Amino acid sequence: MTTLRAPMGATETIAFGPLDITFSEGVIRPRPWTTAQSEWAAEILLDAPAGRVLELCSGAGHIGLLSVLGSGRDLVCVDRSEIACVNARFNTECAGLASQVEIRNRPLEEAVADGEEFALVVADPPWVRHAEIGRFPEDPVTAIDGGDDGLVIARLCLQVIAKALMPGGSAILQLGPEGQVETLADELAAYAEDLVHTDTRRFPRGALMRVDRVPSCRS
């Protein structure tokens, strides 16, 4: 029997739904409320087209892992942080999902290859405005800094979604609680004319934005 070795550095393990998630210093602490993103994703997957799930800005991999748990769907986790990917790989093995999960340590601009398609995309991009990151000293700067308006990385996620979301597929982005969903909804047509903002779920600590790709509009 192989004993899994936790990532090096200061680590902590917390419950995230039914999963035990380990994270190291330099990786953002999973926030309990974000199980709502995974639960919504799992709900969507019940009727989604056949295909893989893509998690962008995956951190420790918790949101994606909980999204696909029990579904049999393959998952691709992408994060530019090497230590985040080490954490995600460890959590994948602990969850018994190593056979269906691929971890990619790369920037969003290189997240997917040409022609790759996914039935569902979940994304937890940094969304704190650069001028306000000092309000969260406990969080790694690279995991929360969303640029001047907090949406720089979220827009990169939308570029990936526009490229890789299959017809009939859906995406769920985690954003800030004040106006960010409306801003991105207004910009959505610039990424692809067949992407539609279909729903928003709001919470005290943030908001979840659902985007669907309309099957009949894509050739």
Score class of each variant (00 low, 15 high):
Met1Trp: 08
Thr2Cys: 05
Thr3Gln: 12
Arg5Met: 13
Arg5Lys: 14
Pro7Gln: 12
Pro7Arg: 06
Gly9Asn: 13
Ile14Leu: 14
Ile14Trp: 00
Ile14Thr: 15
Thr22Val: 14
Ser24Lys: 09
Arg31Glu: 07
Thr34Ile: 00
Thr34Leu: 06
Ala36Trp: 03
Ala36Ile: 05
Ser38Arg: 05
Trp40Met: 08
Trp40Thr: 08
Ala41Cys: 07
Ala42Asn: 15
Ile44Gln: 11
Leu46Arg: 14
Gly51Leu: 01
Gly51His: 00
Arg52Pro: 12
Arg52Ile: 02
Val53Lys: 04
Val53Thr: 11
Val53Ala: 08
Val53Arg: 03
Ser58Asp: 07
Gly59Trp: 08
Ala60Ser: 15
Ala60Gly: 12
Gly61Thr: 09
His62Trp: 05
His62Ile: 07
Ile63Gln: 10
Ile63Pro: 02
Leu66Lys: 14
Leu69Pro: 00
Ser71Trp: 01
Gly72Val: 07
Gly72Lys: 08
Arg73Glu: 10
Asp74Ser: 14
Cys77Gln: 15
Val78Phe: 02
Ser81His: 07
Ser81Cys: 12
Ser81Val: 09
Ile83Gly: 00
Asn87Gln: 10
Arg89Phe: 05
Phe90Cys: 06
Thr92Lys: 05
Thr92Trp: 01
Ala95Met: 03
Leu97Glu: 13
Ala98Phe: 02
Ser99Cys: 11
Ser99Gly: 14
Gln100Gly: 14
Gln100Glu: 11
Arg104Ile: 06
Pro107Ala: 03
Glu109Lys: 12
Glu109Gln: 15
Glu110Ser: 15
Ala113Arg: 12
Asp114Phe: 08
Asp114Trp: 06
Gly115Pro: 10
Gly115Ala: 09
Glu116Leu: 03
Glu116Pro: 00
Glu117Leu: 14
Phe118Lys: 01
Phe118Pro: 03
Ala119Cys: 11
Ala123Thr: 07
Pro126Glu: 04
Trp127Met: 08
Ala131Phe: 03
Ala131Val: 12
Glu132Tyr: 08
Ile133Ala: 03
Gly134Ile: 05
Arg135Lys: 10
Asp139Arg: 01
Thr142Cys: 07
Thr142Glu: 15
Asp148Val: 14
Val152His: 11
Ile153Asn: 01
Ile153His: 02
Ala154Phe: 00
Arg155Gln: 03
Cys157Asn: 00
Gln159Cys: 11
Gln159Ser: 13
Ala164Lys: 06
Ala164Thr: 13
Leu165Lys: 01
Met166Tyr: 02
Met166Asn: 04
Pro167Ala: 12
Ser170Glu: 08
Ile172Asp: 00
Leu173Gly: 04
Gln174Cys: 14
Leu175Gly: 01
Pro177Ser: 13
Asp186Cys: 11
Glu187Ser: 09
Tyr191Ala: 04
Ala192His: 15
Asp194Leu: 01
Val196Asp: 09
Val196Met: 07
Val196Gly: 00
Thr198Val: 09
Thr200Cys: 11
Arg201Gly: 01
Arg202Leu: 05
Pro204Thr: 09
Met209His: 14
Asp212Ala: 12
Asp212Tyr: 00
Pro215Trp: 02
Ser216Asn: 07
